[in-house]
């Protein structure tokens, strides 16, 4: 009975999807509504209205800023959830003796050698994000990976103590906070959410700020995941 019901639902949904897909214009056709109206509009006025010289960035940080805001909030919520679960698991469970194996001297030396270059590359990706497609999230992931590598060499305690707890508390939430701030500032200065105020340098500054916030938020989320896994493993 349940199987028959599931089959029925699948068939109905598949039929609806097929019907929808069959109405789509052939992919890549230049006469499609998407290409004649929306895309043309973006290409015509995107750079000016979006405030970013790159159209992808303009869409990401301006046209669909609300969507990006949602993404940042999702990442932050995931971090909060992992931290909450990790903290509750601390006291319970069988305590297993950590088999402390020192990091190999080769790995240690190589990570120390590469760390400044990785940091530079991460910063480059984040800052370049407002003129080239991509940026904040990708650079943040590189930065987070660097911090995880460093925690292998220096020990997770040093990484945990890098920021005092109150500062860490606020920095973890930096991406949603900065996005909310930008949204409200746009509403106050130009009249709608996420509007970028007029002087070009201010727009640029805001875009760089948004990219930095995305990057730092993503990096700290990654490090948070890793550190709470690591604590679970050793405690």
């Amino acid at each position: 009975m349940r199987n028959a019901l599931a089959l029925l639902i699948v068939i109905v949904l598949a039929g609806l999807m097929m019907a929808g897909v069959s109405q789509l214009p052939p992919p890549g056709s230049p006469d499609g509504a998407v290409h004649r109206h929306v895309a043309a509009h973006y290409i015509d006025g995107g750079t000016e209205a979006g405030g970013a010289p790159n159209l992808v960035t303009a869409v990401l940080l301006n046209y669909r800023a609300l969507d990006t805001y949602g993404e940042v909030v999702v990442i932050f919520a995931a971090l909060v959830a992992v931290l909450a679960v990790g903290l509750s698991g601390h006291s319970r469970g069988p305590r297993r003796q950590p088999d402390e194996l020192p990091v190999s001297p080769v790995v240690d030396r190589i990570i120390r050698l590469l760390a400044p270059f990785i940091a530079l590359f991460a910063l480059f990706m984040i800052l370049e994000g407002h003129v080239l497609p991509g940026g904040g999230f990708q650079g943040g992931v590189v930065l987070g990976a660097l911090l995880i590598l460093l925690s292998l060499v220096l020990g997770p305690r040093r990484i945990r103590r890098m920021l005092p707890t109150p500062a860490l508390f606020w920095t973890r939430a930096i991406a949603p906070l900065v996005f909310a701030l930008t949204a409200i500032a746009g509403l106050a200065l130009a009249g709608w959410l996420f509007a970028l105020p007029e002087p070009a340098w201010l727009r640029e500054l805001i875009l760089v700020g948004l990219e930095l916030a995305i990057g730092i938020g993503a990096a700290l989320a990654l490090v948070g995941f890793y550190l709470s896994l690591e604590a679970d493993h050793h405690d």
Binding site: S104, V106, V107, I110, L113, L114, F117
Partner: peptide, 16 residues
């Protein structure tokens, strides 16, 4: 240079 440095290190770390 990056590959020549990092790839053998990753292999070494995995084997270890």
């Amino acid at each position: 240079a990056l590959i020549a440095i990092s790839s053998p290190t990753a292999g070494h770390a995995l084997a270890r």
